[in-house]
Design a protein around this nucleic acid. Structure first.
Length: 506
RNA sequence: GGUGGGUUCGUAUAACGGCUAGUACUCAAGAUUUUCAUUCUUGCAAUAGGAGUUCGAUUCUCCUACCCACUACCA
């Protein structure tokens, strides 16, 4: 039995979106569960779409989630560029593997599974436009290849000349007609496709001396001894090609098994989750904040205040379920519980409310001291220098009311500074001369512990008096319990605030 | 258009072919609380439609509808 080896193979064309993180996560979980390796490979074969910083963003995102590759770019925190005893499959960036692909492309031509094509981009475009004019779709296939400029139709000498003179030719796969490819997917079961509907995909481009996805992918998965390919559903249509490629190379025996994951869909309407949805509906679609080369900023889960554990957890539950009613899982627990046959087939709509719920749960699980240490810098920004022990006490009191650490300030700012503004609606309701008089009397006569008893004993209207006091202490009639507030700010400060209320409102 | 995939409460999902189709989020109501939040209880709400197989179908088969992906010298 071969050791399990899976890979996550993103393209550095922009920030990794949460769907991509989920794919990486599922690969990672699968690898770890089977005691195997998780490999990070960068598929940068499209020089036109390369975005500076995208690769580092991918690495940073996975690290934030606690996902570390055993092999590949970023293995053990450093970029592996050359083969070594530990990483014999390096390099892991496809642009650094150019030389490898060309020989495999040539091998396919030699064995009659591929051919050279000399059609220019303009010629193909013209053919497409023509077909479209006739209400049809042009595909480069057994239907059309006989009338196009390639090594199948041109004389040998001409082919030789063009190969030498021109630098814009490609190698195309010779898609056989009249075959039905029988495939198996770990999630979807058996699938069969008639090759007559498939086209002759470009495998290698002379112009930049690079392969396209299809060739690079198959060659690398083979060379890197990948045992399972777990990727997004958008790849399902090219699975027949990939099967045929393994067959053409004679690698069927070591062909990896495939699992195509359902897509992540936008919260409302239809279609896959896109960057725009996040901006529009107010939630991040990226793990980390991303600033594009043009200066456009996209929010990230990290910066929005999500705990990485919560992010990983919510991602894991989108498209997979444990078969039990447990919803909260650590990364380690996910490794134990994960299973591809519990992955659903249908696309999963992302629900921002549930995402927040997960973070709330994780926030409560965090120790007060830890939360306090996260809150401290925020306080410092507000110009407040509070004692850690004090902040810890505050946090333990308010953590159940918050979703994010950032919420702490809004919830409890008045435990650090006296309110200067008062909610007018609450003022109208609770700041009446007779109520204020009673509130002042109660405050002057009792401390935090005896306040309630005093109000009760003197048969004051409990709700009104308390809310008037709360208004003075916190600036609003809703919020923390009065005795809790007093415990933190002290009785003297409480009395001062009550007097300030009158001073301010007259 | 073609090819492939998909379809259980609003959302995520559960249910060897067999209880009243379960759970979580959201929402609503009630209880608790000096207020708010929390917490607790309760409630609303689904098998896309139609045939077939079967004693019995959410589950298996077929058809229809709808949704998604792919259909580039992008991944």
């Amino acid at each position: 039995m071969n050791k399990t080896r899976v890979r996550f193979a993103p393209s550095p064309t922009g920030p990794l979106h949460m769907g991509g993180v989920r794919t990486a996560l599922y690969n990672y979980l699968y690898a770890k569960q089977h005691g195997g390796d998780f490999i990070l490979r960068i598929e940068d074969t499209d020089s036109n779409r390369f975005v500076p910083g995208a690769e580092q963003y991918i690495i940073d995102s996975l690290r934030w989630c606690g996902i570390y590759p055993d092999e590949g770019v970023d293995a053990e925190g450093k970029v592996v560029e050359t083969p070594s005893e530990r990483h014999p499959h390096a390099p892991y960036r496809q642009s650094q593997r150019r030389l490898i692909y060309r020989q495999y492309a040539e091998r396919l031509v030699a064995s009659g599974h591929a051919y050279y094509a000399f059609d220019t981009a303009e010629e193909l475009e013209k053919a497409r436009a023509e077909a479209e004019g006739n209400g049809q779709t042009f595909i480069y296939s057994h239907l059309t290849r006989g009338a196009l400029r390639n090594s199948l139709t041109l004389p040998e000498a001409e082919v030789k000349r063009l190969l030498e003179e021109r630098t814009d030719w490609t190698v195309r796969f010779l898609m056989p007609a009249g075959r039905v490819v029988e495939m198996d997917d770990l999630i979807r079961g058996h699938i069969s496709v008639d090759t007559a509907t498939l086209d002759d995909k470009v495998l290698w481009k002379r112009a930049d001396e690079l392969p396209t996805y299809h060739l690079a992918n198959i060659v690398d998965d083979h060379l890197m001894e990948i045992t399972e390919v777990i990727r997004g559903e958008e790849w399902l249509p090219s699975l027949p090609l990939h099967y045929l490629l393994y067959e053409a190379f004679g690698w069927q025996d070591s062909q990896p098994r495939f699992a195509h994951l359902p897509l992540l869909l936008k919260p409302v309407g239809n279609g896959k989750l896109s960057k725009r949805d996040g901006d529009k509906l107010g939630f991040p679609v990226f793990p980390l904040r991303w600033t594009s080369p043009t200066g456009e900023v996209s929010r990230g889960y990290r910066e929005d205040g999500y705990f990485p554990e919560a992010f990983v957890n919510l991602l894991a539950m989108l498209g997979w379920n444990p078969g039990t009613e447990q919803e909260i899982f650590s990364l380690g627990e996910l490794v134990q519980a994960f299973s591809l046959d519990k992955v659903g087939k249908a696309g999963a709509k992302f629900n921002p409310d549930k995402a927040k719920w997960f973070n709330r749960e994780y926030l409560r699980m965090h120790a007060d001291a830890e939360l306090a240490s996260l809150f401290l810098p925020i306080l410092k920004e507000k110009g407040i220098d509070a004692a850690p022990a004090y902040v810890e006490g505050v946090v333990s009191l308010i953590k159940e009311r918050a979703t994010f650490v950032q919420d702490f300030w809004d919830i409890a700012s008045y435990l650090f500074v006296a309110p200067t503004a008062f909610v007018s609606k609450d003022v109208d309701k609770f700041y009446k001369p007779e109520i204020y008089a009673m509130a002042l009397e109660a405050m002057e006569a009792s401390d935090a512990d005896t306040l309630e008893a005093y109000v009760r004993e003197h048969e004051m209207p409990m709700g009104k008096v308390m809310n008037c006091i709360r208004l003075a202490l916190s600036g609003a009639a809703s919020g923390l319990g009065i005795s809790d507030i007093l415990h933190f700010i002290g009785h003297d400060e409480g009395l001062r605030r009550l007097r300030f209320l009158k001073e301010k409102l007259g």
